[in-house]
């Protein structure tokens, strides 16, 4: 599949992800959330190149189940008691709320899998270097230093093991003591080396004035149209939400699940927001054919 969504301006992709998460948190209706979950899974499935979804599946399912089960266990409120076990009333309302929260959480996690694929560090750098140039450098340094520190710690423990000093073996007290020493060495060593990094940054004129960023994405007409599409849908759905649409009142009295005509329209717009990546891909294909 050609990856037109990936090639959109970072601002547009960022709006999609930020908007999706906001809507997932704002809406509380089984139909809305269920539809969003299916849409997000489909999007993730298509953009997941590295098989990351499979890695995350267990985590998504477990955290979903966790929320879905915990709510009825701790919450007895509700008029529709389904059954009583161990003196505990399990109500339909509690299960429904647990299920909705689980759906919204699972969708958010699945969305982050796509987010990691699409919002690469250079796109983030581009977005933020305009607003906070220093933040971009900080992000870049962090991206480099986390793996570097991890490698150094491995190196230190290897060298120390050759001297017969371990953190994995021996008395607990010695192990803790050695572990502290390792971290101390890691910090001293890294600070020492960081002086050289700082010199190399200064030697390349860092901090002398305004910075620009190499990352460059052109904001095209397609991007503008896409941004309008997202903003209009997002605005309308959020307006509906403020008016009480897409929100299922459970307490004190549970509303029927069925959608009113107004709510039905909001539902369609809501879904259109979530399937935005498909709209982009399909739109691209149609233009090709014509």
């Amino acid at each position: 599949m050609s990856n037109r969504f990936d090639r959109l301006h970072p601002l547009v992709s960022f709006c999609y992800f930020a908007g999706s998460i906001t809507l997932l948190l704002a809406m509380l209706h089984p139909l809305f959330l269920g539809a969003a979950f299916v849409a997000v899974l489909a999007v993730t499935f298509i953009y997941d190149h590295g098989g990351n979804l499979r890695k995350w599946t267990v985590f998504i399912v477990i955290s979903g189940l966790f929320i879905a089960i915990l709510n009825p266990v701790f919450n007895e409120r509700g008029r529709h008691v389904l059954f009583v076990a161990y003196n505990h009333r399990f109500s339909l309302e509690a299960i429904l709320i647990g299920g909705m929260n689980a759906l919204s959480l699972m969708s958010i996690i699945a969305l982050f899998v796509t987010y990691n694929e699409v919002m690469t560090p250079n796109k983030l750098l581009f977005l933020f270097s305009k607003i906070f140039p220093q933040f971009a450098v900080l992000l870049m340094l962090t991206l480099r230093f986390i793996p570097l520190m991890r490698r150094r710690l491995e190196e230190i423990s290897a060298v120390q093991a050759s001297k017969g000093i371990y953190v994995t073996d021996g008395k607990l007290r010695d192990r803790v003591k050695n572990g502290m020493l390792y971290v101390q060495v890691l910090l001293t060593y890294s600070l020492e080396e960081a002086i050289q990094t700082a010199d190399s940054m200064k030697a390349r004129k860092y901090g002398t004035g305004r910075r620009t960023s190499y990352e460059y994405f052109i904001f095209t007409k397609t991007d503008l149209a896409a941004l309008f599409y997202l903003l209009i849908l997002f605005g309308t759905v959020l307006y509906g939400r403020i008016k009480g649409l897409g929100y299922l009142n459970v307490y004190p009295l549970m509303e029927p699940l069925s959608l009113s005509p107004q709510e039905g329209v909001t539902f369609v717009l809501f879904l259109l927001f979530f399937i935005f990546p498909f709209v982009v891909e399909v739109g691209g294909r149609i233009r090709w054919r014509l």
Partner: peptide, 9 residues
């Protein structure tokens, strides 16, 4: 030192 001069990932 080749390593310590590097800033970016």
């Amino acid at each position: 030192d080749p390593e310590n001069q590097v800033v970016a990932d």
